[in-house]
Amino acid sequence: TQSIHIEKSDTAADTYGFSLSSVEEDGIRRLYVNSVKETGLASKKGLKAGDEILEINNRAADALNSSMLKDFLSQPSLGLLVRT
């Protein structure tokens, strides 16, 4: 696993530069990185398409609903625990 911390203040970007997809496997919801913008903040921090997001801001990914995800992604900083 890899811990990634991203700050939007690093650039004038209003997004982190990646998209997520939610997949249900064996009754457990998993979050995967769908795509990463080549010039985006997430790419600079090493996030890659296909990575599994285990935690966002110290909250287990399978416990997050879509409104919580939207809220986290609109925050000025983001902490991710990722399995590559």
Rank of each mutant, 00 (worst) to 15 (best):
S9A: 12
A12S: 12
K8D: 01
S22I: 12
E24W: 13
K70C: 12
A60L: 08
K8H: 05
P76A: 11
V33M: 00
L20V: 14
E38F: 08
D10P: 13
L47T: 03
V36T: 02
I6T: 03
K44Y: 09
S43H: 11
S74G: 09
A13C: 07
E25L: 07
N65P: 10
G17K: 01
S21I: 11
F72H: 12
K8I: 07
D51Y: 07
D14N: 06
G40D: 00
E7S: 13
L31F: 05
E52Y: 02
Q2S: 08
N57F: 00
S19C: 09
K48A: 08
A13Q: 11
A63W: 03
A49P: 14
T1D: 12
F72S: 08
T11G: 13
E7L: 06
L80G: 05
L81S: 09
L31N: 02
G50I: 04
R30N: 01
A61S: 09
D62M: 09
G79A: 13
S3I: 12
A61R: 00
E24S: 09
I4W: 01
I4V: 05
D10A: 12
S74P: 05
A61T: 14
L80R: 04
K48I: 03
L20W: 12
V33Q: 05
I56A: 02
L54A: 01
G50M: 04
G17F: 02
I53L: 05
T1V: 15
S77L: 07
T11R: 12
E24Q: 11
K37L: 12
L54M: 09
V82Q: 05
L47M: 07
R59S: 10
T11Y: 07
Y32D: 01
R29C: 05
N34A: 13
I6N: 04
S35I: 04
G40Q: 02
D10S: 10
R30P: 00
R30A: 03
V36Y: 01
L78A: 01
K45N: 03
N65T: 14
G17A: 02
T84W: 07
T1N: 12
S66P: 14
K70P: 05
R29L: 08
E25Y: 08
D71Q: 11
S3R: 15
L64S: 03
E25A: 08
N57P: 00
G17Y: 00
G50E: 00
K45T: 08
N34V: 11
D51F: 04
E25F: 05
S22C: 12
L47G: 01
A42N: 01
D14I: 08
S66Q: 10
M68T: 15
D71M: 14
I56F: 00
K8Y: 00
S3C: 12
L31E: 02
T1C: 08
T1E: 08
K8Q: 05
G27W: 00
L64W: 02
E7K: 11
K48E: 07
K37C: 15
V82P: 05
K48V: 07
S66A: 14
I4N: 01
V33P: 00
G17T: 00
Y32K: 03
S22K: 08
L47C: 00
S19A: 10
Q2E: 07
D10T: 07
V82R: 04
I53D: 00
E52Q: 09
E55M: 07
R83S: 03
D51E: 01
I53R: 01
S3L: 15
Q2I: 15
S21N: 11
V33L: 01
P76W: 09
S21A: 13
S22P: 09
D10N: 10
A13F: 06
G50A: 02
S77P: 04
K70F: 07
S21E: 11
S43V: 11
L78R: 01
S35D: 13
F72D: 09
D10G: 11
E24V: 14
N57W: 00
E55N: 05
D71S: 12
K8T: 01
L78E: 06
F72K: 03
G17H: 05
A61V: 14
T39P: 10
L20F: 15
K48N: 10
R83N: 09
K37P: 00
R30F: 00
V36F: 00
S22E: 14
Y32W: 09
L80H: 02
S22D: 08
N65E: 12
I6P: 04
Q2F: 15
P76T: 10
S43F: 12
G27I: 02
G79V: 14
G50K: 03
L69S: 07
L31H: 06
S3A: 10
K44L: 10
E24D: 13
I28R: 14
I53E: 01
K48M: 09
N34H: 10
G50S: 00
S9V: 01
R29Y: 04
T11L: 10
M68K: 10
E38I: 04
A12H: 14
T39C: 13
I28N: 09
I28P: 04
